[in-house]
């Protein structure tokens, strides 16, 4: 790579282009509810960020004595349920449609990484909530992490969990989700399988 700046300019031109992010045309097959599931997942993540920022701004445990914060906590709770619900539906859709075809393998991989990072992101949120579910799972789940040699993540330490849940994990997850969506936009949505292999081949032969 001769010139890093030239290469960066080239990459960023595509990455920051409105054509990439705000398409005015879509393939005809990418229509309907099945093609809303990814956006519904991303929208749930936006709801998580907004309600999470409200909660973080007011400080841990403020929901326990402030009604408005308790409502924000409830929105945050149902947003995470929505996030995983739509993510799972999206996962089924992309699996059943073989969405890794045509140079989209890394897109799939990033989605899978987003899913596995989302799990501790959600879990650390449960841990800093402070109710019995928090208390029990902090103490119970520590054994698994410790056994795997990941004991530096000390689940019973709510301070560390706060930093993990509010900064480290959501920031990581945001970057992965960004990469996933970026690749979806760059590579486009996977075209359908030919209905029969023979039909497709004969059409191409013409």
């Amino acid at each position: 790579m001769a010139n890093w700046t030239t290469a960066s300019r080239k990459a960023l031109t595509e990455a920051m282009s409105v054509d990439t992010w705000l398409p005015e045309k879509m393939p005809e097959y990418a229509q309907g509810f099945m093609y809303m599931l990814g956006s519904l997942t991303a929208s749930s993540f936006v709801a998580l960020i907004i309600s999470g920022v409200v909660l973080a701004a007011n400080g841990p445990a403020s929901w326990s004595y402030n009604g408005a914060d308790r409502f924000a906590a409830a929105v945050h709770f149902w947003s995470v349920q929505a996030f995983f619900f739509f993510m799972m539906l999206h996962l089924w859709r992309v699996f059943f449609t073989g969405a890794w075809r045509g140079g989209r393998r890394e897109t799939w991989l990033l989605g899978a990484v987003a899913m596995i990072v989302a799990i501790p992101t959600a879990f650390t949120g449960f841990l800093i909530n402070g109710d019995f579910y928090s208390q029990w799972n902090a103490v119970q789940a520590k054994d698994g992490l410790n056994a795997l040699g990941l004991g530096w993540v000390n689940l019973p330490n709510a301070g560390q969990m706060f930093g993990m849940h509010v900064v480290v994990l959501p920031l990581t997850l945001s970057l992965i989700i960004f990469g996933h969506i970026y690749r979806v936009r760059i590579k486009g949505v996977v075209p359908p399988y030919p209905i029969t292999q023979e039909a497709a081949t004969s059409k191409e032969a013409k």
Partner: peptide, 22 residues
């Protein structure tokens, strides 16, 4: 070979789609 090629692009209001899901 594993993908159809003969498909069209149709007009789409992507922003409306995103605002809709949000």
């Amino acid at each position: 070979e594993d993908m159809v090629k003969n498909y069209r692009y149709v007009p789409e209001d992507f922003m409306k789609h995103l605002m809709g899901t949000l």
